[in-house]
Amino acid sequence: MISDITLGQFFPGYSVLHKLDPRTKIIIAILSIVAIFFANNPITFLLITIIAVILIWISRISFTVVIRGIKPILLILLFTMILNIFMTTGEGDPLFEFWIIRVYTHGIIRAVFMAWRVILLIVITSMLLTYTTSPISLTDGLESLLLPLKLIGVPVHTFAMMMSIALRFIPTLIEETEKIMNAQKSRGADFSTGSLVNRAKALIPLLIPLIVSSFKRAEELATAMECRCYRGDKNRTKLVKLELRTRDYLCLALSALLLAAIILGAILPYNMPINIAFYDLLFYKI
């Protein structure tokens, strides 16, 4: 069911993470993405994992919800892992050989970390953005961050308005789709059996009414917006003004520090002269 997917959903709440300014969260999310791509050894991965766990913990969203959010991409993860295992050529003898396939220890390690990287990416961005930030404040945050682009003629406000209207109408359209589907099923339409071609054909009685009614909705909404004096962002004020507070500055500073630490952790070790087993393990280059 469509409603079972938790990825991309917003969970209302009152945690610190919920209260942070959306711009702070967007910036931290970008910093995290950079950090995750820099991370290339166990110690940096460990650090980012700890950060992810802390984020989940302070958001007060249950771990099960977060894990359920990863479910939809498990297949893709598995596929990339297999590719990584088979495509990586390592030094020394392969772990085992079969026909033309050679699996190296290094390949397995790489695959695990690759998957881990994707999971971290999804967990951290959804913790910061979708799970704890309402769509509307996310749009506001984006609009505000992209505002400088207005100077070079990018219609930032229009873009943000379109996005928030799209978000507003997603549930309405899902409901509508269900209704039309039921109406056509009542006329004997069959959406779930038959060949691929037949199933595609069966979608026509669903898609055409959906498109027609969406156009009608769009037209009515545009009229209603004009009636409420909408004329783009000309002289427009906002009920909710984004304001950076002390906690935002603190979080931003902390994130910058952590990013620096991770980059250092990823680059520095190779220039260090010491060489002991434990150290090797921590900084094993993936």
């Binding site: 509508e176 209704k179 039921n182 109406a183 056509q184 009685p205 055409i208 009414p209 027609v212 009614s213």
Partner: peptide, 12 residues
């Protein structure tokens, strides 16, 4: 036979 509410939206 079920005629849904606002059935005109099912025409295609």
């Amino acid at each position: 036979g079920l005629v849904m509410q606002y059935p005109e939206y099912q025409l295609f």
